[in-house]
């Protein structure tokens, strides 16, 4: 393939990944890296570098829309970003040392886990009315709009959430993904933050987290302009279309299809990593 054909094909695939990622809420990055490495045989380090930049683009591009809805909690986000950015730095430095086959295996495992998370019915977290001392001191409790007016909530288990966020950041830096699934898990399950607040705040954190490792990748020569160009533009366009369409479509079967694809990609990544092909 020459550069022109390569850019067009990768651009179209990235558009599809961004579109489905936005529609299903799984994010474009999870499908992108396996697609580039398994289908187009791109070196996984280039693929991760390109994916990270596209993750930043989607998160920053969607920020305005999320803030307008009034669910985001900037204090929770900013405090937890200390953990995610430190984790992201660690992940990026690990990526420079860990063999690519190990990265592929970890990537595959994360894909299988995210598919499992998205396929599982959303467990209802009982709302707890007792304020938590640390969370209150950190000014994290807030309120969100509901049909019966603003509803207030209390944040819990800050240290647990903080540790999980460090892990989410490390995965993001190591694999070049947004790791939104782990971020939502930390806020929604561990810290008992309402689901909608968790997902929108997570989206805001994804860009900041990815920026913390993208600098390292750029400085070490892992970001190739010829590859990052079609990937970033494609994912950005795809996710913008995806968020526009989101309101009108039923996403149940789409999620199922996308999850199935992710499971297959995950298995293939683990196999390729174990057999030493990546």
């Amino acid at each position: 393939m020459n550069n022109l054909e390569f850019s067009l094909v990768i651009g179209v695939c990235s558009l599809g990944a961004g579109f489905l990622g936005a529609l299903t809420g799984l994010g474009g990055g999870v499908a992108l890296v396996p697609l580039l490495t398994l289908l187009f045989h791109v070196d996984i380090r280039y693929a991760i570098g390109a994916s990270l930049v596209s993750v930043i683009a989607t998160s920053s591009g969607a920020a305005a829309a999320y803030v307008k809805e009034g669910f985001t909690n900037i204090r929770i986000g900013m405090f937890l970003e200390i953990a995610t950015t430190l984790g992201a730095l660690l992940g990026a430095f690990l990526a420079l040392m860990v063999p690519t086959s190990a990265i592929a295996i970890i990537f595959g495992a994360v894909l299988l886990f995210s598919a499992y998370l998205s396929g599982r019915p959303q467990p209802v977290v009982p709302e707890d009315d007792h304020p938590d001392l640390l969370a209150t001191r950190l000014g994290m409790n807030g309120s969100y709009p509901s049909l019966d007016g603003p509803r207030s909530y209390y944040v819990h288990r800050v240290p647990t959430g903080f540790s999980l966020m460090f892990g989410a950041g490390a995965l993001s830096g190591l694999l070049g993904i947004g790791s939104g699934a782990v971020k939502v898990l930390a806020m929604d399950q561990a810290m008992k933050i309402p689901f909608k607040v968790s997902t929108t705040t997570s989206n805001l954190m994804i860009g900041v987290t990815a920026a913390a490792s993208a600098g390292v990748y750029l400085n070490r020569g892992y970001v190739d302009p010829g590859l990052a160009m079609p990937v970033t533009l494609g994912v950005l366009a795809g996710s913008l279309i995806g968020t526009k369409v989101l309101v009108k479509t039923r996403t149940r079967w789409l999620r199922l299809v996308f999850s199935t694809v992710i499971v297959l990609l995950g298995l293939e990544m683990v196999y390729k990593g174990v057999s030493g092909h990546i």
Binding site: M78, V208, A214, G215, T232
Partner: peptide, 16 residues
């Protein structure tokens, strides 16, 4: 292209 990518990486930094 790299310059544009650095601008992208800078957007979350500006946000913080």
């Amino acid at each position: 292209i790299q310059l544009g990518l650095i601008m992208l990486i800078a957007t979350p930094i500006a946000r913080v």
